[in-house]
Design a protein around this nucleic acid. Structure first.
Lengths: 138, 138
DNA sequence: GCATTATACTTCGAATTCGAATTATTTTCC
DNA sequence: GGAAAATAATTCGAATTCGAAGTATAATGC
């Protein structure tokens, strides 16, 4: 019990379960989970630089460039030079991207939230504490 | 606190943290996390059919075929027809695969286990219970 | 026992991922 | 104030991923 890695297996399984819900959901709208994550960040936080988005969405820098390119082609975002730091870019939702999220986000949120509701409020809070500790590492 | 999806963010972050530890570790041995997962299953459980491995390793069937092909090319596994079910195959470690795992597994295990040790035994047990509930879903 | 349906696995093509190298800009610090 | 190191983002090629379709075999039900 104390020195096996079963906890990891269970963590990965829970992650996969939630990821699959997300994937099934966003795929109907022709978008990847990563791309959705980008739109979601912008939808909730407003314009952000690429670095900040990447930190939130947890992919490699190069994957983020790819994803932003795709979202740009689709007309959901634009990238502008950051006036405060010439190295960076600011990413914004277009009105089309905004409309897209307004249309699909509520149902998406609802579906995931329902899934989380297998835990009561206390358990959910406990889970957060423990996972945070694990995520931070040493 | 009760109807946001922050718990998901934290879950994904913890998952990513552990995955990155795994990736850094196994990449030094020129192997992917998925391929390592296959070898690990076989190393601990003995010969298994493809379906069983896929359930443990959590990838699409087609990804498993790809991974097994690669592991075969590398001489770490063989696939044999399942005598009890003509549709299936039994996957076995070769002696080379066995030796590979014997060489690298202990340090890998140790590294991950250390990471889990940020939680004490009680917390780890609690985490398992909660994650299991989440993984099962409705 | 034969047709239907389900299951195990593979193949295929396209999308996404990563890591390493590159470019451009900013920060550090002497 | 200029060289060296750090940071932001992109490009590139290769590896891995997925989902859909295909093949082969087994189980089901009539």
């Amino acid at each position: 019990m104390r020195h096996d890695l079963k906890t990891l297996t269970i963590l990965f399984r829970a992650h996969k379960a939630m990821l699959d819900v997300m994937r099934d959901d966003v795929r109907q709208h022709g978008i990847s989970v990563t791309a959705f994550g980008v739109l979601e960040a912008l939808y909730h936080k407003g314009p952000l630089d690429v670095k900040t988005i990447t930190e939130r969405v947890l992919v490699a820098d190069s994957s983020m460039s790819y994803t932003l390119e795709k979202l740009g082609e689709r007309g959901f975002i634009v990238r502008e030079k950051n006036p405060d730091d010439g190295r960076g870019k600011i990413v914004k939702l277009t009105s089309s991207g905004e409309a897209f999220m307004a249309a699909i986000y509520p149902a998406h949120h609802e579906r995931l939230r329902k899934r989380l509701d297998v835990l009561d409020a206390t358990d959910e809070a406990t889970l957060r504490v423990l996972l945070k500790r694990l995520g931070k590492g040493a």
